[in-house]
Design a protein around this nucleic acid. Structure first.
Length: 470
DNA sequence: ATGTAC
């Protein structure tokens, strides 16, 4: 005789049918049981609920190793540079496996940054319909701005700048803050990636600040015009760092769902999603804030020195640029095609610094296809900070500074010489200049010979407090 | 890069 006992449906049955546990699960099971109580056949119940089985997330596989290639625009000059190139190559090769990536390039100043598979400094990555927060660097919109100050006295300008600019961590003290447009702050509040109390506060407190590391304020003289020239280098400071973090978090959610094989640092936000559109908008707002940051320091320096401004232009070298549906990520790479930004120099000029003792190059990019349209952003480093200290040997940072910056007025805001910013810490400037031209990346149209500069200077190393104690 | 995870 047939057994007519019907076992009551459980969550296990639903899972066997393909349903997934979640907030909707109790209701789903309740409905299944009620149908069963009403005498509905189990097969019919299963069929009735089938439309509620979630569609599994689409998984996107990595590219085969070597399937997507990148262009090398780097001529190593010695064993150190050979070693550097090998490391850059290895990390770039891993980056190229990212599913969204369709191409890449390295610049003459390329050097590794972070674990294998992280876009190097001096790296460019092209992705289709994807924004990779980890590929525009944490210092979103790190950039340079130049103002022609005519016949202003260089010493007067540098002294004035020393008084008005701000280096080091954090923002300006109360009473010395620069104003930030209320419209810009409102726009921050309207963007889901920027509508954060700490981001807004940092945007207010850190306007008119330059941070640390390789950021600088440089005064020099143009070979073309003979004019005194002010150049600043910094990025989006705290607000940008916060945006970077928020972007990485959202990208990580997509990565886990759709491409867990992709390296964490190469996670992306689909550009055509709501998240993608909001993140793109947030990048443009951070860019606007950064431009204002440069402008405010130039303006304050001019007012304090009595100089009047001639032409002014700027360019970012850590950013994402859109050409068609391709998103070009530059991490330490200068965009070199005409009109890379609506507010770029109408003459197509961009700014490439080398080191504190060398002229800053003014170039016109050649939109070289073998460089994805980019040129380098500086001289690049061959060694880590510790390796550089080792190579200085018995020489103190102060002695090295005196030796390497004869005739220049170099000031460290925090007082101590930062050895990692000395000229000897960078690749030979001449080699980078030569490669810009020999590799046909850009035309050098002017040189701003150094008078002097201000940098953050060495700061005491940050040590985190032991966990659980204060 | 950032007062370096709240």
């Amino acid at each position: 005789m047939e057994d007519l006992t019907i076992t009551r449906l459980t969550g296990r049955d639903l899972k066997n049918w393909g349903h997934l546990p979640g907030p909707q699960f109790p209701d789903l099971l309740g409905r299944a049981n009620r149908m069963q109580d009403d005498g509905v056949d189990v097969a019919d119940i299963r069929a009735k609920l089938a439309s509620e089985i979630p569609i599994p997330p689409e998984h996107i596989e990595l590219h085969e190793d070597g399937a997507v290639t990148f262009d090398e625009n780097l001529i190593p000059a010695d064993a150190d540079e050979e070693k550097n190139l090998l490391k850059v190559r290895e990390t770039m090769r891993a980056v190229m496996r990212t599913p969204t990536v369709i191409g890449g390039a390295i610049m003459p100043d390329a050097c590794p940054a972070g674990p294998i598979g992280t876009i190097p400094v001096g790296g460019v990555v092209a992705a289709q319909n994807a924004i990779h927060p980890g590929m525009h660097s944490a210092d979103i919109c790190c950039s340079l701005m130049l103002t022609d100050l005519g016949d202003a006295d260089s010493a007067t300008v540098l002294d004035a700048a020393s008084k008005v600019t701000h280096f080091g961590p954090g923002g300006r003290p109360q009473g010395q803050r620069f104003t930030v447009s209320l419209d810009l702050l409102d726009a921050f509040r309207a963007n889901p990636f920027l509508n954060n109390a700490k981001t807004i506060r940092a945007a207010q407190e850190q306007m008119g600040t330059q941070g640390d590391g390789n950021h600088f304020l440089f005064v020099g003289r143009s070979r073309q015009t003979g004019h005194t020239t002010l150049i600043t280098h910094h990025g989006s400071r705290g607000p940008g760092a916060k945006l970077y973090k928020a972007g990485m978090e959202v990208a990580e959610k997509y990565r886990r769902r759709h491409s867990p094989q992709t390296l964490k640092q190469n996670a992306w936000i689909p550009a055509d999603s709501d998240d993608g559109r909001a993140y793109w908008d947030a990048l443009q707002l951070i860019r606007k804030w950064t431009k204002t940051n440069h402008n405010s320091i130039h303006q304050a320096t001019m007012e304090a020195s009595g100089a009047s401004a001639g032409e002014r232009f700027w360019n970012e070298h850590n950013f994402v640029f859109r050409r068609g549906d391709i998103y070009l990520h530059g991490k330490g790479a200068t965009p070199g095609w005409f009109g890379f930004a609506a507010d770029a120099d109408p003459q197509g000029r961009t700014i490439i610094p080398l080191n504190m003792a060398e002229p800053v190059l003014i170039v016109r990019g050649k939109d070289a296809s073998h460089a994805l349209g980019f040129s380098p952003h500086g001289a690049g480093r061959n060694w880590s900070r510790t390796e550089h200290m080792r190579r200085l040997g018995a020489k103190t940072a102060n002695e090295a500074l005196i030796e390497e910056t004869v005739g220049l007025d170099v000031r460290f805001h925090a007082g101590k010489v930062d050895a990692s910013e000395l000229p000897s810490s960078y690749k030979p400037a001449a080699a980078v200049s030569a490669q810009i031209e020999s590799l046909d990346l850009a035309e050098i149209v002017d040189w701003i010979d150094p008078y002097g500069c201000i940098m953050a200077g060495e700061m005491p190393r940050f040590v985190r407090r032991p966990k659980g104690r204060r």
